[in-house]
Write a protein that binds this DNA or RNA. Structure first.
Lengths: 341, 341
DNA sequence: ATGCTCTGCTAAATCAGTTTAGCGACCACT
DNA sequence: AGTGGTCGCTAAACTGATTTAGCAGAGCAT
């Protein structure tokens, strides 16, 4: 890779100047007193030789690599990881930086390895990303330089970027209230573990809080709440069936995520009920399936791309130390309608 | 990042030896005649100081960075990208390498930028990945060093890794034949553009070829073939409805991907038909939704993780120049049954 | 005593940049 | 004539590793 590239010395020689002069011109240093003609000659020589600086050599001296480490627990198993990475990639490119990506798979040995690997490469900063919004403690080794937490918070008060799940909870509840749903709203996806242990999830508690706050203000109580051990389609399916087996049928369902909603759709379909005429459904995440469902599913979008972008901005441009909340936009789709009655 | 790390000079000083000696010991150079005691002292000093080599300095001299560029057209929009990356990440870690990830978004300017960025960082090789299996021409700039194409082939005869779509086509057709389906198999997802332009897709043609070859051998002809402009759920839905409007109802459906199958499921549900009792469904990709559908969808899995892994192996360990075909395993699930009759 | 080989180690060059310190020429001022 | 300042530029040090070339001393044979 990169055989016989022109070096700075080549450029200087061709311009008839010293390496110092060439370096200063190419780096656009202020306060230097090189003539306009010298500038011309250097630029021309660099152009002709197709000169590109060797970043290894540069960073040896400057201790800057224009490289950011993106260390995450798991990139592959969630479909959202890509968006997080893409946002970070875009923002990094705009600032002439590049991303070194590693994955710890939640394994301490791998994490150790990943951190050494990136520190050895003198990265300018670390984005430490979690795939489920949660609280975590970052390894001490990376605290020597700039760190931003992505989709996570930490007790250390490090800068962090998280989605505004509480705001999303309010949006979801408000959307139903506006349509006239009041005394027959059911919730699918309560989960003690996710709600109570911030190291497992911050989203569950925040979403729930946003929903309840909004309903309380409207003096509305939930018709029913279903607990689910996981937030997967099969659990949404089971929860929906149990709701339908009760005497009073809900007019609207809030699902804690789209996969639960997908399961709920299946149960509704089997029961011969139609969305949204019989029951409205609204949810969280904006998983791609939300748009594919029939009818399309209203949901609040996890702004992953925005978040990835924000993390890079915080890292390179500096910013607030308190958690940076990224709004979750409501996607109004066809699964919403006023209550049937 | 990496404030006051111990340098090789520090280690040498503490061991009471020269940098040369320290370097040779730590790199485990053969043929050197340093005493056992010298070895001990260097190792001890390195250990005590927590020495880690500065890779920028090393690579300046050796022109090796232990870094691989992963350049892809689009990582975010497809959920599979993560698996490709994860496989590459794993294989890279096993070889003490790390991945520099960039995205071109199919934009020539971005591509130019991405390539310069990775070449400037002296990467040891480039994995050039496409998100849809297709043929492409790689930019000349990266041909100076090792390159492996991932999920793509090129006219240049570069080493490449692609899924065995033709084999998948044979698996799918065989699975139906084995169950006894013969004269009522329909296909959803024919598409001239995908089949005829290798720069758009290689998968469509190969899958179709595998299917037809197997059916031909069994002297079976397809009952019907539906053309779809895209392979999205809505197109599968429309195709399925049109099939059901015809006089002879199919006993089994082959969908060219899982998203089409998802749409087909929706149409079957609305028509009051059950899978697999009334109609079997089988498909390609093993998208996560395939396992979430009710009943779960039989499909052939795109072995993305394997492919990412193989690409790194080919790049670092060397290997065949002809395209490396990675098998697509058949996931037998509940959407298959013998024909009703 | 001389030359030779082998052992165990080191000085210095090298990679490709950035940065510090300073040089010579010219001009102005006293 | 001497001094000081500015202008336009350069030599050399420096970053932290690897690598080449070679040195001092011991052991042995001639």
């Amino acid at each position: 890779m990169g055989r016989n590239r022109a070096t700075l010395a080549d450029v200087a020689r061709r311009a008839g100047l010293s390496k110092t002069a060439a370096s200063m011109v190419l780096n656009g240093r202020e306060g230097t007193r090189l003539s306009a003609e010298a500038h011309q000659r250097v630029f021309a020589a660099a152009e002709e030789l197709g000169y590109r600086p060797n970043l290894a050599a540069r960073s040896l001296r400057t201790r800057k690599t224009a490289t950011i480490a993106f260390v995450s627990d798991i990139v592959a198993t969630t479909r959202f990881a890509g968006d997080l990475i893409r946002g970070a990639l875009d923002a990094a490119r705009e600032r002439d930086h590049v991303l070194l990506i590693t994955e710890t798979q939640g394994d301490a040995t791998f994490e150790q390895y990943a951190i050494e690997a990136v520190l050895d490469r003198q990265v300018d900063g670390v984005i430490y990303a979690a795939m489920a919004t949660r609280r975590l403690t970052v390894p001490a080794a990376i605290l020597g330089g700039p760190v931003v937490l992505l989709n996570a918070t930490s007790p250390d008060g490090l800068p962090s970027v998280v989605p505004d799940d509480e705001g999303a909870g309010r949006s979801v509840a408000s959307a139903l209230l506006e349509l006239g749903h009041r005394d027959a709203i059911a919730l699918i996806g309560r989960n003690r573990l996710k709600e109570d242990d911030p190291e497992v999830s911050l989203a569950a508690r925040a979403r729930l809080h946003g929903i309840q706050q909004t309903l309380d203000e409207a003096k509305v109580r939930l018709l029913a709440e279903c607990f689910c051990t996981e937030w997967l389609p099969e659990h949404g399916y089971a929860a929906m069936r149990s709701l339908l087996s009760k005497p009073k049928r809900p007019s609207a369902i809030i699902c804690m995520n789209d996969r639960l909603a997908f399961g709920a759709y299946q149960a509704l379909g089997e029961a011969g009920l139609t969305v949204p005429e019989d029951i409205s459904v609204i949810s969280f995440d904006d998983d791609p399936i939300a748009a594919w469902l029939r009818p399309s599913l209203a949901t609040t979008a996890l702004p992953h791309e925005q978040m990835g972008r924000r993390a890079v901005e915080l890292l390179l441009d500096g910013g607030a130390a308190e958690p940076s909340l990224v709004p979750m936009p409501l996607r109004r789709r066809r699964s919403l309608a006023p209550p049937a009655g």
